[in-house]
Simulated assay, not measured.
Amino acid sequence: MHKLIILLALIAVAIYFFFNSSLYHVLKSGDIETIKSFLGENIYYTLGITFIIMIIQNSFTIIPLILVISLNIALYGLYYGFFWSWITSIISSIIVFLGIRFGFQDWMLKKLKPEIVNMGEKHGFLYVLQARVIPFIPTSIINITAGLSGIRLKEFITATSIGNFIYFIILSLIPAGLFSGEINVYVLGILAFFLILLFYLFKKFYRKNNRKTARENQK
């Protein structure tokens, strides 16, 4: 618990300095080449900064996710950029989730509408998974709502990992230039179809497994 509070305090300090830095104003421009030039060539520095950016994106959603992924792909290439975006998004989501659940739960319950919290409480795993794949709710709200609900950490991590993997693949195609005509449009359509099919098959399997478990518990 104390370690978590110290970690959150350090992140809060980092975020404060980030908002008061030149980098924040460069990011607001949305120009990838300008951001790359500003960050320079130091790999450890860029990894640290892009990780902090992802934490901020998962905490407040003031930086568009497509911009973060585009920056990572521009810095590290398609595969490493995608992987780094995916891994940091999972870690950032866990940090926010744990921070809300063990640090700010009482305060946040007063700030959010009850129906938003009830949505996460009622659907749990599927709420997080659906919201990740079809992002009708900001990333930060998903993390906060999950932290306030009764969803287990294991379920939250699994749903986030699967949902972000599918969604990030689609988002990564945009900065990679695949939507600009460098790949056959039918290939994109087939890829999108199979990704969505995978999501709904997993969703169906999860619901069926839950019903089976509920029946066994009633016996």
Rank of each mutant, 00 (worst) to 15 (best):
Ile94Leu: 08
Ala9Lys: 15
Ile43Tyr: 00
Leu112Cys: 05
Ile174Cys: 06
Tyr127Arg: 07
Ser161Val: 07
Leu71Phe: 00
Asn164Phe: 09
Gly163His: 08
Lys28Glu: 12
Pro114Cys: 03
Ile73Met: 13
Ala14Lys: 05
Tyr45Ser: 12
Ser172Arg: 13
Ile169Phe: 13
Thr160Arg: 04
Tyr16Gly: 09
Lys36Ala: 09
Ile174Trp: 06
Asn72Gln: 02
Ile100Leu: 14
Val96Leu: 00
His25Tyr: 15
Val13Gly: 04
Ile166Trp: 05
Leu195His: 11
Gln105Asn: 04
Val96Ser: 11
Val13Glu: 13
Met108Asn: 02
Ala14Thr: 14
Ile43Gly: 00
Ile142Ser: 00
Gly150Cys: 13
Ile169Trp: 07
Asn184Ser: 15
Pro64Leu: 10
Pro175Ile: 06
Arg132Glu: 09
Ile73Arg: 09
Asn20Ala: 06
Leu47Val: 15
Ile196Ala: 08
Asn20Arg: 06
Ile134Asn: 02
Lys208His: 12
Leu173Arg: 14
Tyr200Phe: 13
Ile63Gly: 14
Leu98Trp: 04
Leu7Thr: 10
Glu41Gln: 09
Ile56Pro: 13
Gly189Pro: 10
Ile137Glu: 08
Phe18Arg: 13
Val26Asp: 03
Gly30Val: 01
Arg101Val: 15
Thr145Arg: 10
Trp86Ile: 03
Phe179Cys: 03
Ile162Leu: 06
Leu171Asn: 09
Ile90Tyr: 06
Ser89Gln: 15
Gly103Ser: 15
Ile63Lys: 13
Leu23Phe: 03
Leu153Ala: 13
Gly189Phe: 09
Arg215Val: 04
Glu216Ser: 12
Ile141Val: 03
Ile32Pro: 06
Thr139His: 07
Leu27Ile: 15
Asn164Lys: 14
Leu171Phe: 11
Val185Ile: 07
Ile174Tyr: 06
Leu71Asp: 01
Glu33Arg: 02
Asp31Asn: 14
Gly40Asp: 00
Ala14Ser: 14
Val117Gln: 01
Leu198Trp: 10
Phe199His: 14
Trp86Gly: 05
Ser149Gln: 07
Ile169Ser: 01
Leu47Gly: 08
Gln105Leu: 05
Glu155Thr: 02
Lys154Leu: 11
Tyr200Val: 12
Ser140Pro: 08
Gln57Trp: 08
Ser161Met: 10
Ile183Pro: 00
Val187Arg: 02
Phe193Ile: 10
Ile49Asp: 08
Leu109Asn: 14
Ala12Asp: 00
Glu41Cys: 02
Lys36Asn: 12
Val133Cys: 11
